[in-house]
Nucleic acid binder design. Structure first.
Lengths: 203, 203, 203, 203
DNA sequence: GATGAATGAGTATTCATTCAT
DNA sequence: AATGAATGAATACTCATTCAT
């Protein structure tokens, strides 16, 4: 039944309405009634598809971030080594946010204002992304491309932290510049960082 | 007069009470009356020292983050080159948060839930830190240590993004490990990243 | 839609509850929650029908005073000259307040304690009554019944001031006597006053 | 001791400060601290001269209205008959308010917003004025100038209601015109009203 | 499935008054 | 007498959620 609902037309309709309302009015002004109005349904109808307001937001995050990560995972399969994979992560991360300005606002600025409890659920979704990143770093080490001493968690923190800060800055500056221009230099710096230890070791 | 108040004993008392309450109960459960009780003053007394609730939080951030940044700036003066300065930023950032667990929770998790308006004021304070970081990167380029093509803003985003993500992960994992152990590998990776371009140029 | 709400059962229910609460407890003790309880609805329901507390009071005044004035205007149409009209004003003013003791308390004593802003809106409603009175005085002059030199505004001030003071005194004396007994002598005095100049002119 | 205080310099200083503050900021914005500041004394000092805030306002009313009524009573003594006395009341009432714009605002608009309890004490002060007016009407009847059937209370209500409404309208219209110009026509109308019955009796 | 009117818990802030100095 | 820092009670309004239709 849950799956029935998630495949239903209105389920997506309501999630997209939530994205629009949050992007336009901000997280704190995104009342359930406003989302219902944007979706063209009655307030009560929301509760036929979602347990409560938090469920809308978690579902929003799961759906959108899920698609985001899936797209990257798909690309991974075409890659021959960790360097290419790293490039795909950087490039896809930047490209996908570039292509969805409304979603960028919601993800980078507004949803971060959410309560602790919701943030925990968001983190559950992000774990997939985290694992993906750590897998790439691990395989890079196995391939001998990255420094053998590279801490996988620290590497992932640098990778995610850098990408996240890049996108956040871009959104906070009203998306005035083309974020995609930063993917190549960012990739090169991250690559150098991940290789770094090895360089010195060679000496 | 404003300075009188800020130097007063109770001003700090109330700010410290706010840190404690937010760390213990979370941002959304931090009612003014709870802060007053923790500080051992009457609710109304709060308003002799702060304009409103938002003012408590902004002052908290300004005071604590101001001290944080000042401590780093002070260290800068003892450094002879950009590499040393970068090390000081990484090391001090990590050390200062390590030493103040309650403040870490407040800064990394709770205050990010604040409303847009408050976050704008927080960003004003952070600008000082951003400038400090960009200054270091710029001087590193001038000294020929960092890649001449290194984008100062992108470099700063990587620096801040990495440090911020490191601390956030540490806090979210209940500070189970010693954050300071990460400062050396993080510094080395960042240094390699900032030098990276130059290596290729040498070729 | 606004009209839908104003015609709704609950709109009137709440206004009548406000009259009762204000009459019984006084203006300053008339909390929204008390009005809601008296009306038998939840606090929040009030805000489905009124913008805020002030809106309840303005609506109360507009509704009640509007009906009051309409009743007088209706009677005006049956009158053949200004003297009859003047009589209707005096008699209806006195009769209507006599018939609604609770409303008299609210109008004459309690609502006058309202803040400046609310009083401005009250004055807007009263303007209708003022115009009605001035129209009668003007027509009396045109009919040659009242003194040609009679200042319309001054005449209206005497008419309203006298009636208002009569009702206020009656309410403040706990409505111990029959206010309607004063309508005939009051009318005769006002009539003499309005004619007065003309008498001397004849000489 | 009470008399000591009332004769003290600061007692009057504080009352005059209250008039100024209420006239400038309105009744509801006239906080004790604002009055203290205007008077140039500390908040606590107020309570050495007045029991509480209400006591300031009652004292204000008693002092100012007392002087107002005394001035009229004094004039009464120079009058030879009720007609002259009536003229003095009308003329003095209008003249005294004309001469004190700030006090007019306070008396006619602002103090009427006061709570029921305060209003009762104000009415106590006004009783002196009421008696004065009723005395004049009674003497007018005894002198055969006014209608023998004239109800003293009703007559007084007309007299006070008319004067009060005249002054209130003048204040509400920002004192744009010379109120004193209305004293003669108002007097003539009132005189006619008070004589009225007698005219018909003569017939 | 769909509606939307009704619910009611929860909280920042002001300001008259006090009292230690 | 004078001060002014400290007190703490009191209240309108929002909005997620329900449920009768």
């Amino acid at each position: 039944m849950a799956s029935d609902k998630k495949n239903s037309q209105k389920y997506q309709l309501i999630i997209d309405a939530a994205v629009t309302v949050i992007a336009n009015h901000g997280y704190h002004a995104a009342q359930v009634s406003k989302i219902a109005k944007e979706a063209g349904v009655a307030d009560g109808t929301i509760y036929l598809y979602f347990k409560n307001k938090e469920d809308i937001l978690v579902s929003l995050f799961r759906t959108k971030m899920g698609g985001f990560i899936s797209a990257i995972e798909e690309r991974m399969e075409t890659c021959h080594n960790a360097e290419e994979k790293l490039w795909q992560i950087v490039q896809m991360h930047v490209t996908q946010f570039s292509a969805q300005p409304k979603l960028s606002i919601v993800m980078q600025l507004e949803m971060r204002q959410s309560a602790r409890e919701l943030r925990l659920q968001i983190n559950e979704v992000l774990k997939m992304y985290v694992h993906l990143m750590e897998d790439v770093i691990r395989s890079g080490k196995e391939e001998g491309i990255f420094n053998q001493n590279l801490d996988e968690k620290l590497g992932r923190q640098m990778l995610f932290g850098t990408l996240d800060e890049m996108v956040t800055n871009w959104v906070m500056n009203d998306r005035k510049y083309d974020l995609r221009n930063l993917s190549t230099p960012a990739f090169e710096m991250l690559l150098a960082a991940f290789k770094s230890g090895s360089l010195r070791k060679d000496v």
